[in-house]
Amino acid sequence: MICLGIEGTAHSYGVGIITNEKKHCNVLANIIHTYQPPQGGIHPREAANHHVTYADQIIKEALTHAHLTLPDIDLISFSQGPGLGPCLRTAATAARALALTLNKPLIGVNHCVAHLEIGRGTIPACTNPILLYVSGANTQIIGFAEGKYRVFGETLDIGIGNCLDKFGRYVNLAFPAGPKIETLAQQGTTYYPLPYTIKGMDVAFSGLLTGAQQYISRHKPLKDICYSIQETTFAALTEVTERAMAHTEKKQVLLGGGVASNTRLRDMVKTMADERHAQFFVPRKDLCIDNGAMIAWLGYVMHIHGHTMTIKQSKINQRYRTDMVEVTWYA
């Protein structure tokens, strides 16, 4: 079965095409086009306009890359939420149009769950992980328990990527600031203490952001502040991930989301996993960031487990929480 998935929850518009090899995912194409704001952060309407501009071009590119034509597609999947309304509507509209034109089934999926399932789908040893999902807007510690993906911990204020971007804007680093902060942090040597905020299995970053900004106004070296930000936020994230693993007695940890590209974060989580004798997994980069392949894969998994959707049911949900999905396929 071949499934085409359309991702459009935020600033990235992605089209992925997957097929299954027995129980695992084979990615045939995964084309991503990312909206770059001329300045500042993402304006939802501007990002949606970007998606509209590239909607058909990216679909065609994905098909060409996979050596397929539209009639070869068996199922259309799209990101139903959570995310920015205008962006979600663009992806959903494209998906509905394709499904109706081709007369093929349509399915809307949860973006956060897709980040976890693409790990399980493409890494055979990854069967029952705790996911540390770290992106711009989202920072969640997710795991399967009692029929659903449960959010064991999450940010109480801003996402980790958002925290890095906000700091980046403050010191005039262009969006996305994460990779630039990472490069600067590698040159940092002195640690400046910052708030390390953990509440149960939840984290918070806004106090740390203020603290980092105060060091800037006191003319501390930028590379050292970047180093301090990374060391503090990533250690807190690793600690709550470990807490969730201890709490659920799971022996696997999976990284996902754009911030999962950061090598320091990977190192920390891997070290933690090694010390617990747990397995550490991270999908390849284009499957970590927002992408269409993960949407296609989750759509496929849900479809073969009997989930169906009418056009009427395909309304987007900006507040589609991870634990709203009935997970009938977990094994």
Binding site: Y191, P193, Y196, E231, T232, A235, T238, E239, D267, M268, V269, T271, M272, E275
Partner: peptide, 13 residues
């Protein structure tokens, strides 16, 4: 002590 955390964070914590 957690070796994923730098000493400057780990020890005081």
């Amino acid at each position: 002590p957690k070796s994923y955390r730098i000493k400057e964070i780990d020890t005081p914590l």
